[in-house]
C-alpha cells in the first residue's frame, strides 16, 4: 500500500519552541504542521496521511491532556507524544495510561523526540494498515449471503460440518458448499486464515458498539 507524506502535528503555545521543532523535523525531512492552541488543531481538517501529534501539556484554554481525551472520545486515533516544561509523574502516568506514545519533559534530546516520532509514525502506519485490511475484510464479508455468514460464524467457533448441518437443518454437503464459497469470497487461504479475519472483524465490531 502506498502512503502519502507522513506529517507531524505540533501543538505548543511557545512560538520559539514550535519554530525550533519545525526546523529540527525539516532537518530530517519530516513535514509538520504547527498549532498554538488545541482548538486550532481540532478545527484543522487533517489529510488522510500517516501522522502523529507532538502535544504540549500546558496550553492556554484546552490543555494537552484535555485534547487527548477529546480525541479519544471522537475515536480519532492519532499517536500522541507529550512534551512538557513542568511535567510531574502523576501527569505523565495519566498521559501514558491514556495511550500516549511518549512523555518527554522539556528540554529533551532531539534523538528522543525523533525516536518517539518514529515509533508513533510506525504505530500509525500499522494502525492505518490494519484498518485498511479490516476495511477490505469487511467489504468481502459483506458479499457473503446470510446463510454463508451463518456457516462461517459456526465454522470459526470450531463446529464440525456435520454438527452445523444438524443445527441449521441442511445436509452436510450443502454446508460444505456454503463454506467453500465463503472461503473464496473472503479470500481465505486456510481455515486458520478465515478465523483470523473474523476475529479482527469481531474486535472492530465490538469496539464500535
Amino acid at each position: 500500500m502506498i502512503e502519502g507524506n507522513p506529517t507531524v502535528f505540533i501543538v505548543d503555545d511557545d512560538a520559539s519552541v514550535r519554530d525550533a521543532l519545525k526546523r529540527l523535523l525539516r532537518s530530517v525531512g519530516l513535514r509538520c504542521e504547527l498549532f498554538g492552541l488545541a482548538q486550532e488543531f481540532l478545527r484543522y481538517r487533517r489529510p488522510d496521511l500517516p501522522s502523529c501529534l507532538v502535544l504540549d501539556v500546558r496550553l492556554p484554554g484546552t490543555s494537552g491532556l484535555d485534547l487527548q481525551r477529546q480525541l479519544a472520545d471522537a475515536e480519532i486515533q492519532i499517536p500522541i507524544i507529550f512534551i512538557t516544561a513542568h511535567g510531574d509523574i502523576p501527569m505523565s502516568v495519566r498521559a501514558m495510561k491514556a495511550g500516549a506514545v511518549e512523555f518527554l519533559p522539556k528540554p529533551f534530546r532531539d534523538q528522543d523526540l525523533l525516536e518517539a516520532i518514529h515509533i508513533a509514525m510506525e504505530r500509525d502506519r500499522t494502525r492505518r494498515q490494519r484498518e485498511t485490511e479490516i476495511a477490505a475484510v469487511r467489504a468481502r464479508f459483506e458479499t457473503l449471503t446470510p446463510r454463508e455468514r451463518e456457516v462461517v460464524a459456526m465454522v470459526v467457533s470450531g463446529m464440525p460440518n456435520k454438527r452445523i448441518a444438524t443445527e441449521i437443518g441442511i445436509t452436510e454437503n450443502t454446508v460444505k458448499v456454503h463454506r467453500s464459497r465463503a472461503m473464496d469470497k473472503m479470500q481465505a487461504l486456510s481455515l486458520a486464515d478465515l478465523v483470523k479475519m473474523v476475529e479482527r472483524l469481531a474486535i472492530r465490531l465490538e469496539k464500535a458498539s
Binding site: 525550533a20 530530517v28 512534551i83 532531539d110
Partner: peptide
C-alpha cells in the same frame, strides 16, 4: 520551570537541528 524550559527546549532543538543540517 516553564519559563526556563521553554527557551532551553528551543535552544537544544535549534542546535540539534543545526547539527543535522
Amino acid at each position: 520551570a516553564h519559563e526556563i524550559n521553554q527557551p532551553l527546549t528551543a535552544v537544544i532543538t535549534d542546535v540539534s537541528a543545526s547539527l543535522r543540517f
